[in-house]
């Protein structure tokens, strides 16, 4: 059986999580402590992928990322490549798809840290950015772990949106969920079973690890 789709999925999930941690951390911080009146609408916007069917995201992405689309058009002009049917296009789609799974745990962790430690750091002379990196981020450590693991696992399970914008190119956009779908479609149930069971066990272990870590943290009286 061909294991390339598993590798593609792992790559996609890793890149997506890194992008989301970089972009999501300032966003989550702003959502946690910001006072702007835009905070609540943005919070709702971030949560949208939780409730929307992936087909909605896939449909909009197919149009936005397409060569005539407002994102895909300029991209094509600059790079000479189209965004649909490319790994880059999948990363953009996955970042949106998994956004709440990374931003929400981070936001809650930052809220848990509260303003106190940062005010203390400021009194000791730390500049805001310094206080953020050396005080808030370490205190929110478990939030980062939860965010990274959930974002990773959720991206691994992505199907509908990728089905619409990916084009199922072997070695580039054929991820494990698509491979399973195609194995079922061609009645190759043996391969479908292997990949499905692998994904099932992996996802369970991921969730088990998070729940165990969180429980241990709580009973240990941390944060």
């Amino acid at each position: 059986m061909n294991l390339t789709p598993v590798w593609i999925s792992l790559q996609l999930a890793s890149v997506t999580v890194v992008v989301l941690l970089v972009l999501g951390t300032p966003l989550a911080w702003w959502l946690a402590v910001g006072r702007s009146r835009w905070r609540v609408p943005v919070d709702a916007l971030v949560a949208l992928p939780l409730v929307l069917p992936p087909t909605v995201l896939g449909f909009y992405m197919l149009i936005l990322l397409g060569p005539q689309g407002p994102i895909g058009g300029p991209w094509l002009a600059v790079t000479g490549d189209t965004l649909t049917f490319s790994f880059t296009g999948l990363v953009i789609t996955s970042v949106l798809y998994s956004l709440p799974f990374v931003v929400q745990p981070l936001r809650d962790a930052f809220r848990g840290v509260g303003a106190g430690p940062l005010e203390a750091a400021a009194m000791l002379g730390a500049r805001p950015l310094d206080a953020f990196f050396s005080v808030a981020c370490p205190l929110a450590g478990r939030g980062f772990l939860t965010a990274a693991v959930l974002g990773f696992a959720h991206t691994l399970g992505e199907f509908g949106a990728i089905l619409m914008v990916g084009g199922s190119i072997p070695g580039e956009t054929r991820v494990v969920a698509i491979a399973i779908y195609e194995h079922v479609e061609t009645l190759d149930y043996a391969s479908a079973h292997t990949l499905s069971a692998g994904l099932l066990v992996f996802s369970f272990l991921v969730l088990l690890a998070i729940y165990t870590l969180n429980r241990r943290g709580r009973s240990g009286g941390m944060v």
């Binding site: 197919l62 060569p67 005539q68 649909t84 084009g167 199922s168």
Partner: peptide
């Protein structure tokens, strides 16, 4: 060549200009 899951998806790629 871009492969759709079925002929309907191949057609949809054309209709959306992709």
């Amino acid at each position: 060549i871009i492969q759709g899951q079925n002929v309907g998806q191949a057609f949809q790629y054309l209709a959306t200009g992709n």
